[in-house]
Structures are given as structure tokens and as C-alpha cells.
């Protein structure tokens, strides 16, 4: 939901005269919204600027993002930035995993019960 939030915000700012660039890691959500300028880092959600505890890479990614923003010729311009990820290699599979359907169903039931209790 973070990416939709900034996508809508970028569109509002841009329509009112403030240029924008988004640096994020969920490209499908931003592709659907259609945003002015988007630099993509293919990293686990949480560290769009670069892997945690790697300030040199973060600064390189940030500089590339700003240079891209300066050069982007048209709306919906995007760039895939090179990243070096040295953490767990299966991060794409483990996010929102469906491996334990019974636990997921139980979590959903608990959440609905909690929401229902708050309404009463």
C-alpha cells in the first residue's frame, strides 16, 4: 500500500507543478497507477534506497535516481537500477508465502474477529 500511496501523491504534486521522482521496489503497483518518473530497485520491500547497512550503495542508487529524474523526457519514464543484494536469495518466494494455508486462514479469522469486536 506504500507504493500506491506515493504514486497517488506524486500524481497530485506533478499535476500542481512540483516535479517528482519515486524510488521504490514494487514496480507493478506503480506501473498500474502511471506515475511521472520511477526508479526501480529490485530489493525486498523495506529498503528502496539500497540494502540496509550499505551506505555506499545507497548513495550510488540515490545519485542515479536523481540523475535519471533530471534526464527523464516523458511521463511514465522508468529505470531499473543495478543493485547488489547479498541477503537471503529466496526473498521473492518468502514474502506473503502461501505455504501454510491453515495458519493463513486462522490469521484471517482472528483478524475478522478482532475487527468485529471493535465495531461492537
Amino acid at each position: 500500500m506504500c507504493h500506491q500511496t506515493v504514486g497517488l501523491t506524486a500524481r497530485h504534486l506533478e499535476a500542481n507543478g512540483i516535479p517528482t521522482v519515486i524510488l521504490g521496489s514494487a514496480r507493478d503497483i506503480l506501473d498500474e497507477i502511471a506515475v511521472p518518473r520511477f526508479a526501480f530497485t529490485d530489493l525486498p520491500l523495506g529498503n528502496p534506497v539500497g540494502p540496509a547497512d550499505d551506505p555506499a550503495q545507497q548513495r550510488d542508487i540515490l545519485t542515479s535516481t536523481l540523475r535519471f529524474a533530471e534526464a527523464a523526457p516523458l511521463p511514465q519514464s522508468s529505470v531499473v537500477l543495478p543493485v547488489v543484494w547479498s541477503g537471503t536469495p529466496d526473498w521473492r518466494e518468502t514474502y506473503m508465502s502461501l505455504d501454510d494455508p491453515e495458519a493463513l486462514r486462522a490469521a484471517g479469522d482472528a483478524r475478522r474477529a478482532s475487527q468485529q469486536a471493535r465495531k461492537q
Binding site: N47, V49, P55, G87
Partner: peptide, 20 residues
């Protein structure tokens, strides 16, 4: 919602790059 199993957000510069 972010990937709490694969990374952390203790390094603020990785998502809020004010110092950078």
C-alpha cells in the same frame, strides 16, 4: 507491510535518505 523476514529498517538511510 514490508519484508520483515528478509531485511530490517534500523538503518534509516535505507528508506529515508536525508543524510545522503
Amino acid at each position: 507491510s514490508w519484508h520483515k523476514g528478509a531485511t530490517h529498517t534500523n538503518d534509516v538511510g535505507s528508506f529515508l535518505p536525508l543524510d545522503h
